[in-house]
Amino acid sequence: MEPSDLRIALFSGNYNYTRDGANQALNRLAGYLLSQGAALRVYAPVVAEPDFAPTGDLVDIPNTRMPVPGRGEYRLPLGLNAAARRDLERFAPNMVHLSSPDPTGHAAQKWARDRGIPVLASVHTKFETYPRYYGLGFTEPLVEWMLRRFYNRCDALVAPSESQIAELKAQGMHDNITLWTRGVDRDIFHPCKRDLAWRRALGIGDEEAAIAFLGRLVMEKGLDSFAETIVALRRREVPHRVLVIGDGPAREWFERALPGGVFAGFQTGPDLGRALASADIFFNPSVTETFGNVTLEAMASGLPVVAAGATGSASLVDDGETGTLVREGTPESFAAALAPYCNDPDLRRAHGQAGERKAGDYSWDAINQTVVDTYLRLAATRR
């Protein structure tokens, strides 16, 4: 079987309506599949004004606004209606790829299993950690049980980091898991994109150490940890500035928590590359990410990284060489890790350059070929 023999039905809860790291990876994969001659059909919620155009043919599925406070921009897929099922039958996939354990993912999984079609699931985030950010931490064991049931009904998983694979296996999610890491666009993310004039226009001086946050402004990205760390850094009287790149429903909360912070808003493409390279240190306190696209983008932009020693970042950051991994995850420990970078331009430069060199190893085509190889392996096993 060749890649051109593949007919893949890809299911996503958010393929293109709100830009995030997961759907950027899925669209990159879709482009690579089409370039290899595979047939692809994507089933996901469709909105009137998506953040970007989809790669491949997109079929709408039933959905409603996410019933979670502050997450109204996201849609909850509600299953497969008659129209989607008819479209699936006409497309006749020989591979089903699920990227989210939502009601549509469950329905598509059953549809494929009933027909003997192999099912691959990709893991993009640590869903079991989300409840803690909405006062529902007591439900985490239940969410983990539901995820275990869903993933073990798939033929195999792909996950973006070795540390995440180890954690998934320890949780009993599956024993057949392949590494599908992430790539970075070096035409966008590169130290040469640094723009001092852009910084000055935002009120950041040339010699000031700017600590960057990059991502959607939602609580599960660690906004509370970030803000508490900056307070601790100020108590230490460490000179710095804060540069927030991104937007989201928690922006108003974040602005109140970071008085004096510079909020650059949502950036994309070359503007995003310029904003990130114009910072000096990247701080990522999130523990929900399975890879951390933003961490890799910061490394490619020549920034040293201070991050939580969680899955994802732990597979990217070489502690003491390209940045600092903080295992404790307290504001004081994060502040202690950030302070040397704020005070020492030479340390920033050395670790930033080492991170940029490491980012050069992440080629999208080679990375996406591992998913194609997994498809072919599952198809051969099923035959």
Rank of each mutant, 00 (worst) to 15 (best):
L58E: 10
Q353F: 00
P62T: 06
F150H: 01
T268K: 14
A209T: 02
G261L: 02
H351E: 01
A170R: 13
G56F: 10
T55N: 10
K110C: 09
D187P: 04
R115I: 11
A201T: 07
H124E: 06
P340K: 00
G309I: 03
P118R: 02
E208V: 02
G105P: 00
L157P: 00
A156M: 12
L316V: 14
T139H: 08
A379L: 15
A212H: 00
D187F: 06
Q369H: 06
S313Q: 01
L338N: 05
A107L: 11
A44C: 04
Y151I: 04
E321R: 13
A44M: 03
A307C: 12
A264P: 10
L80S: 04
G260E: 14
P141R: 12
P54N: 10
R194S: 04
R236D: 00
K126Q: 15
N27V: 07
A380E: 11
D102Q: 09
G265E: 05
N16Q: 07
E328L: 11
M95W: 01
V158D: 07
V262G: 03
D20F: 05
R383K: 13
N63S: 15
W180K: 13
D365P: 12
A197T: 11
I61H: 05
Q267P: 08
T381P: 04
S163W: 08
N23M: 09
V305S: 00
A30T: 07
F283I: 07
R200T: 13
D185R: 13
H240V: 01
P239D: 11
V371K: 06
L10A: 04
P131Y: 02
T129Q: 14
D206S: 13
R182W: 04
S122I: 08
E73S: 10
A275G: 01
N16D: 12
E73K: 08
S315W: 12
V371N: 07
R256L: 11
A92I: 09
L316D: 14
I188A: 02
N284A: 13
F213M: 12
A210S: 07
L6P: 05
R90E: 14
L376Y: 03
L98T: 09
E162Y: 05
S122T: 15
P3F: 01
A83L: 02
S286P: 02
L76F: 01
P141W: 11
L214Q: 04
D365M: 10
L98F: 11
A380R: 14
A300P: 03
F282P: 02
G116E: 09
D271E: 07
R251W: 09
T295Y: 06
E321H: 07
F11D: 12
W111G: 10
R235Y: 09
V218E: 15
V231Q: 13
A307D: 11
P270Q: 12
A210H: 01
R200H: 15
V306I: 00
M95P: 01
L33G: 06
S122E: 12
Q171G: 06
G248P: 03
P304H: 00
D247V: 08
A264F: 11
P239T: 03
R71I: 09
I281M: 00
F150Y: 04
S163V: 08
G261R: 00
R357I: 02
F226V: 01
G31Q: 10
L316R: 03
S35I: 08
A279P: 06
S100K: 06
E144P: 06
L136M: 15
T181Y: 01
D51Y: 05
G292Y: 07
A30Y: 05
A38S: 09
A350C: 10
L26H: 10
K169G: 11
D5R: 05
L214W: 04
G355S: 06
R115D: 13
P3N: 02
